[in-house]
Design a protein around this nucleic acid. Sequence first.
DNA 1: ATCGATTTGTGCGTATGTATC
DNA 2: TGATACATACGCACAAATCGA
Lengths: 247, 247
Amino acid sequence: MTTITTFDRSAGIAVWRQIMETLKAEIVSGAFEKDRRLPPESELAARFGVNRHTVRRAIAALTSEGILRADQGRGTFVASAPLSYPIGPRTRFSEIVSGQDRSPSGRLIGSEIEEADALLAHQLDVPLGTPLLRVATLRVADSVPMIVGTSWFEQARVPNFVADYAESGSITAALKKAGIDDYRRKETRITAELVEARDARQLGLALGQPVLVVESLNLDMAGRPIQYTRARLAADRMQLVVDGGGV
Amino acid sequence: MTTITTFDRSAGIAVWRQIMETLKAEIVSGAFEKDRRLPPESELAARFGVNRHTVRRAIAALTSEGILRADQGRGTFVASAPLSYPIGPRTRFSEIVSGQDRSPSGRLIGSEIEEADALLAHQLDVPLGTPLLRVATLRVADSVPMIVGTSWFEQARVPNFVADYAESGSITAALKKAGIDDYRRKETRITAELVEARDARQLGLALGQPVLVVESLNLDMAGRPIQYTRARLAADRMQLVVDGGGV
DNA sequence: ATCGATTTGTGCGTATGTATC
DNA sequence: TGATACATACGCACAAATCGA
């Protein structure tokens, strides 16, 4: 591998950060899995063709994210491996996480009434300006934040949602209390973006990190949209797994 | 929406680039429909709390990517919408692209023999150091590069692959010539990374942009791995669509 | 046809951050 | 550690194009 990469100094991204990303991609794809040890800083500096200070700054940033661990005198080691997230019609975060020997938790981090903008009006099939309930959740595995999710519902259809959700901790249960007994997923759209400032704080990511964005729309049994969700996944800590699908 | 976002000035990412990403995310998620006007620079500058020059630089970068188009005196407009890529067992890039009124093309951008490292040996279930054929392809829609793909095969099983592929332009056809009549997808793993320097050149992306990484493994009918593929998709130009799946 | 308001395009001076040597 | 080169961000001013009254 040991490719010598040159860095773009006018791309709006500091060189130390470009090095940080390169290292992170290699870590996630398992390049240092043998002994989980990184090459010494001097070697990395030579490989990237930069000053050793610059490499140190990249390593410091990865350390503060918990991805690397630097031991005095011994070297720098990979600290964490990514979580697999199978994507399907009936997946539950809690089951996925437990199945991989980690302990899940989740909590409500905010809810608010807002008016439907063009995008939400279109997705939920309501007139512009319709009052919507926005619910934000944070899901955590082994006390490491994994997913920030924002869901929108037509407010009139789920009048007591927040209390019901807080009580049960389950969206399904809260919808049931609102008379929506069953629902199904229409489709899911996946893309990648750079993390926004607020999500970066919630997920404990540095700015400029990529997130997987998963947008999904749930319909009730009559085919009417009830819930539009936009989830942001810390890409360095998760992989989506689709059975059979491919590009 | 009109959220006032503050930007981190010590994250190693230029503010203009953070604004560029914010705008791009809003465009991709459909906040401004196609041929729709963006708010004026002065308004965006106020919203982001920065100088107008800084907003202009973000807009300039998006313009050079073909995402925006600015007309003096009139305003700034969205120039292109992202391509939807349904992910499933039987999807072909060419059909997807044609189905969205764009014209697809693809070409071989490199092939090489290399020895299996730990990751590839595990995926293809061969001993470490086994000679592998690595094939790199670039797929393009309307002359805009979309996907860089790298596939690995056990070299001994596909002795004349490169010539066969160059002749037919189809991996399926080239595998057939090697006696592999049919194959099926085992699973697909999706994650997001920041683009590498080489892929950035191929895809015409700026460094620091996120890419969707789709890794998939094909098995022959006996269940033996034959092809491991790692595709990098320009995230600002594509969305993966999974039917029914969700998070 | 003209004017004024709006919006993008351009220039310059200054201060600060980044990376090298 | 300083000195140097360059990119980044700001502030202000003004030119050029567009549009509607």
